[in-house]
Design a binder for these strands. Structure first.
Lengths: 214, 214
DNA sequence: TTAAAAACTTGATGACCGTCAAGTTTCTAA
DNA sequence: TTAGAAACTTGACGGTCATCAAGTTTTTAA
């Protein structure tokens, strides 16, 4: 279990601990019984974090029938979008077992950001970094050949660590996922690149062999 | 040519016009002669926007040799990252022809955000929306079959517009690019889905035929 | 240290899809 | 209205890669 609920939310988890604690102070921890309604559209919009338990998030269609959007388990969260932009107008959350749930009120949060502009600047900074990482991943995934994706990834990573020798930060399985391929194919591609003299490898230890990293 | 330099920068271009103008007021427009240095690491860090002309962005390696990172043409920009986080410590920009260049100073910009917390909140909001869109695209690109990517895209779009009939917002060519495939394959997949009775299509007019949009 | 699990590799196979080239339809602007 | 361009379609083909299954190696934890 995380020390702070807000650490579970990607939006916040890269923030310095001080800022995280400022936000944590705004959070209301509460216990709900099974089948109890946690929030509905008349509530203030909230970020909802499941500290422990489970809940389901649903909307009601015209016929009044539930439309389950998401099932939340321990450690999950929802409603990041309600902290900004549109408020929640049609979504309900109900505990599906006895649960401990953290709620962060939209207005409280916006007020904090207005009072502490530094906080929103840091959040913005984190988010811009994230955007750049995602764009890079999309650029990679758009290369049709796995070989090119892998090479591009390795070059980028080498540039980032500033060295042509490095240890892969991901397991093959995860790297395969990141590159939109399978461990099998990835394994073969590594061997291919090694045969071509592009790199040397011992397990996850990689050494790139070309002159220029650009 | 855009009315405002800052509209060229994705970070800003979805902002309300008022906010854009506030930022634009901070921008220094300047003319540079061919080969003139626009900025170096001793300058304050700046966002640089090429209103007209061209420039090259480079670093110097240990031997003092130029390492060209990027070539900027009319409408291009660079240094978005210097507005936040790390300052520029090693990059030079030089005009490669007579150019009109807009510079936005990091400190000016941060000061504005601190004075106007609303601004950074809006920027953050835009950025979060962008993150969500990018994550969706990655999720799509990770599906190995084009067919699945297309169907997933169509379902998501239908949900967004709240209707099973809609007009594709992208040309085939662009949709193909977005889905990481080619116009040819995309065309074939549309026909396949039509034959299967999943949808009807007349040009870019789409109608999904399955019961449930979820 | 040793056994079990997890990670990684290897092989065979066929479907999928990118490519190229040549069509057809739709759009655009004079 | 019409010619030209752009967008889209169709066909044939071959390479890439996902899949499945059965290895081997490395890691983990008792």
């Amino acid at each position: 279990m995380a020390e702070l609920c807000v650490q579970l939310v990607p939006l916040f988890n890269a923030l310095p601990i001080d800022e995280q604690m400022q936000i944590e102070e705004l959070v209301h921890h509460q216990n709900y019984r099974k089948n109890e309604l946690v929030l509905d559209p008349t509530s203030n919009s909230n970020l909802i974090i499941l500290a422990h338990g489970s809940a389901r998030l649903y909307t009601l269609n015209k016929e009044g029938h539930e439309n389950v959007i998401q099932v939340l388990k321990t450690g999950d969260y929802a409603g990041e979008n309600w902290l900004f932009g549109e408020a929640n107008t049609n979504t309900y959350v109900e505990a599906t077992e006895d649960s401990e749930i953290c709620l962060l009120n939209r207005n409280d949060f916006l007020a904090l950001m207005k009072k502490q502009p530094e906080l929103s600047i840091k959040l913005l900074e984190q988010n811009i970094i994230k955007v750049r990482a995602l764009q890079k991943q999309i650029q990679l995934l758009s290369l049709p050949k796995v070989e090119d994706r892998l090479l591009n990834y390795l070059q980028t990573y080498a540039k980032k660590v500033g060295h042509k020798s490095f240890i892969l930060p991901l397991k093959m399985k995860d790297l395969a996922l990141y590159l939109g391929t399978t461990p099998e194919t990835l394994s073969r591609k590594f061997i291919l690149l090694e045969k071509r003299g592009v790199l040397k490898r011992k397990l996850r230890q990689i050494q790139l062999l070309f002159k220029k990293i650009n």
